[in-house]
Design a protein around this nucleic acid. Structure first.
Lengths: 125, 125
DNA sequence: TTAAACTCCGTACATAGGTACGGAGTCAAC
DNA sequence: GTTGACTCCGTACCTATGTACGGAGTTTAA
């Protein structure tokens, strides 16, 4: 049983972030009506850890909300995982193309003997 | 000589985007004072093409502004290219780690025989 | 000549994921 | 029992990159 400040500190996140996730519907608001203070237990801690782990995997908050509501259906969860996998692979492919282009450009710079021109600028112009 | 609408159409961007780049200092505002309408020539077209190409390479608008102001110094431009290259490579490495993690997860789903549990949800919980 | 199309400007809105503020109420420690 | 720390809530603000709106002025084409 802990208040929001303890909870946030334990998870290494901001108090405002907890309230933000609450507004987003990712977690439910617990209330001890006497004081009006939110009182959390380990269930809430685990929920938030779930959210933080999923976030680290690149899921958006909306996707995390889906993941949590889907948690009974392994096939649906797997499908979200596969979709995320496709997105990640596309991003990797895009970045690898960029990597190649920019690497070629910087190599041209290294080989450049003319102090009055820059191959990168030239190829962009 | 063309007005902003023709320019934007030629480049496949929005009129508002041209004005936005102007506000950001990426391009200078040309004015024919009689009407108050902006009048552009091919110099402006080429400047904007430069911006669009650099953007496609993943440079931010601030970085593009630097690129344009640095265009005399090949070493400085090369340095920005190398910095961008490092960032791209870091992103690729991060994404590849994610790819591995999520792929392992979805593989576990495929192998899963228990209809009442999901390996992905379990590993997040 | 008049109607349609174009442009002006400043401002608000959008996304995603938060962060900051401020006045009021509550709790805990000394 | 008071002072300092904590929490409440709603709202505004932040980044980055634009997009949308709306009233007023301008240009163009029939």
């Amino acid at each position: 049983m802990k208040t929001i400040g303890k909870l946030a500190k334990e998870l290494g996140i901001n108090i405002e972030t907890v309230r933000f996730y609450e507004r987003k519907g990712l977690i439910v608001q617990p209330l001890k009506p006497d004081s009006g203070y939110r009182i959390y237990d380990n269930t809430h801690v685990n929920q938030l850890k779930f959210i933080l782990k999923a976030k680290a995997l690149g899921f958006t908050l909306d996707e995390i909300a889906s993941l949590m509501s889907l948690s009974g259906s392994c096939a649906d969860v797997e499908s979200m995982g596969l979709q995320k996998l496709r997105l990640i692979r596309k991003k990797i492919a895009d970045l690898q193309r960029l990597e190649q282009v920019i690497q070629d450009m910087t190599n041209s710079c290294k080989a450049n003997q003319d102090p009055n021109s820059c191959p990168i600028i030239n190829s962009l112009s």
